[in-house]
């Protein structure tokens, strides 16, 4: 084999593995546990204190989005509960500056996917089925791949009506 052929082969291997590496980084090394502006712990709220999910994510039953609690709701409790903790102080700062908290999205779906929380909740699904053991997480970690195969496997298993039709999720 002459040098040129070897070089071309090297290049081809490099390109292919580059692609693999890119994909792998996307799938397995993506930051599934991003840092949040406030170290909010679901473990304390949903786990230890057993606040129901839909007390804060109040739209999940009524809308396609579940909603994040408005700052007023946070401050409503925390003006009394643990007002001196440093994380609550951060919350207080946001409230006093009339700024919303810039939470980082953990479960982020692309624009071409239509996912209604409402239908899934009404079908009797537990939040934990997709979001994992939230009540034991200090910082939220994405537990599902959110890939189409993942969606479809459940739709197939549960024999969802029209569950494999493209226009059920892509409009």
């Amino acid at each position: 084999m002459d040098t040129i052929k070897k070089l071309v082969l090297c290049a081809v291997i490099a390109v292919v593995t580059f692609g693999i590496g890119y994909k792998v980084s996307d799938a397995y090394f993506g930051n599934r546990t991003p840092a949040q502006p406030i170290e909010f712990s679901h473990k304390i709220h949903a786990g230890d204190n057993q606040i129901p999910c839909m007390y804060c994510h109040s739209y999940a039953e009524r809308s396609r989005v579940s909603g994040v609690p408005n700052v007023k709701r946070c401050i409503g409790c925390h003006s009394v509960i643990k007002p001196d903790s440093p994380e609550i102080q951060k919350l207080k700062n946001y409230w006093e500056n009339k700024e919303p908290i810039p939470w980082v999205k953990v479960y982020n779906l692309p624009d071409h996917v239509y996912f209604p929380h409402k239908r899934h909740i009404k079908a009797g699904l537990e939040c934990q089925m997709c979001h994992g053991d939230v009540q034991s997480m200090d910082r939220i970690t994405r537990v599902s791949s959110l890939k189409m195969g993942w969606c479809l496997s459940c739709h197939t298993r549960k024999k969802v009506k029209n569950g494999r039709d493209c226009w059920t999720c892509h409009i």
């Binding site: 590496g21 996307d26 999205k105």
Partner: peptide
Amino acid sequence: VGTGVGLAFGKVTKPPGAKLIPYLI
């Protein structure tokens, strides 16, 4: 080398996390 560069490239070029902005009131 290819895999490594791919990994790194993937890390760098990925869009920053989208934000989830709540209502104040």
